[in-house]
Amino acid sequence: MRLTPEQVQKVAELARLQLSLDERERYAEQLSAVLGYFNMLNSLDTVNVSPTSHALMLKNVLREDQVRPSLSQQQVMSLAPELSGELVAIPRTFEG
């Protein structure tokens, strides 16, 4: 299966990425190669294999509902590129 540059553009929009025309072409090529591997998988006969969502045989890994220390406010804030008082600041998004 071959991806078109238009399909790449749609995925890029969903990911909020800006791609040039040249990049759309290039990524269409590269992503098509990735999809090619899935075609290889599709050629296997899986009639007798039940669907699974995980490769691990583990189940029910749970924790008790106990509060543990968070990072300090200072540590959290130090990760942000811009601050406003105790809040992280970013360029304004379109609406609330």
């Binding site: 543990r68 220390p69 968070s70 990072l71 406010q73 008082g85 105790e86």
Partner: peptide
């Protein structure tokens, strides 16, 4: 394990997982 309490100082109840 971050607390879910209301009223904490902003950004004081966060850790690597929930960030």
């Amino acid at each position: 394990g971050c607390s879910t309490n209301y009223g904490g100082a902003p950004n004081s109840q966060a850790c690597p997982v929930c960030l």
